[in-house]
Amino acid sequence: MLELRLVQGSLLKKVLEAIKDLVNEANFDCSSTGFSLQAMDSSHVALVALMLRSEGFEHYRCDRTISIGMNLTNMAKMLKCAGNDDIITIKADDGSDTVTFMFESPSQDKISDFEMKLMEIDSEHLGIPDTEYQSSIKMPSQEFLRICKDLSSIGDTVMISVTKDGVKFTTSGDIGTANIVCRQNTSVDEPENATEIKMQEPVSLTFALRYLNSFTKATPLANIVTLSMSADLPIVVEYKIGDMGYVRYYLAPKIEE
């Protein structure tokens, strides 16, 4: 028996919008720790890891560790029917081939339930080592969104270079080239407007903008995004979900031939 009640239902709606374009179907793993997911895109170049810790739910019952396979497009369709202020409850009985999403309006005057068919999904789990990254950048998530969107109108890939002077985003295409440099700036009114660069070693890696743009679908979840990079390793793009968990995206770098 699985029963998870999330008072801030809009979080789940935003999570689905953040991952459904990258991954079409995925297994959600439910354990006493929390509700999580790890899935790769169809080309196995990008991976999304979601964690919603059990403490963040108002009610969290998961009698045994289970994995429930869902089509994310269909799940997103159902969650779109929930109001932004609604409380969302996810329910699944043992051995059932369906999951139920229940939406309650804040004043309890409207209660809806949507039942969705589950799927059997063969998924490959990757072991992601805990790594100390050579560079990490914390910046406003809106700023990162803007940079990815702007650069993708010029080129297909972006080189992200971190030095002590700042982080530089470079692209080039048929019409020309573009460089955007962001410097560390922590003297701002609000911490969410700060750009913070931590660098042990300078790093320069190239990535496909198409994927980075897809990751920015998570922008409504967090004001700050963290980019972590080490030479010859996938970048990690992390959006924290309050103090409840995170959505992390991993993207393999492009290699010079």
């Binding site: 790769m40 080309s43 196995h44 170049v45 990008a46 991976l47 490959e124 789990h125 990757l126 072991g127 992601i128 080592p129 890939t157 190239t206 496909a208 390793l233 996938p234 991993y250 393999a252 770098p253 492009k254 290699i255 010079e256 031939e257």
Partner: peptide, 14 residues
């Protein structure tokens, strides 16, 4: 010219 590797080469399967 750049080429795109998959994640499998970086992270352990299973």
């Amino acid at each position: 010219e750049t080429s795109q590797n998959g994640l499998g080469g970086f992270f352990k399967r299973g």
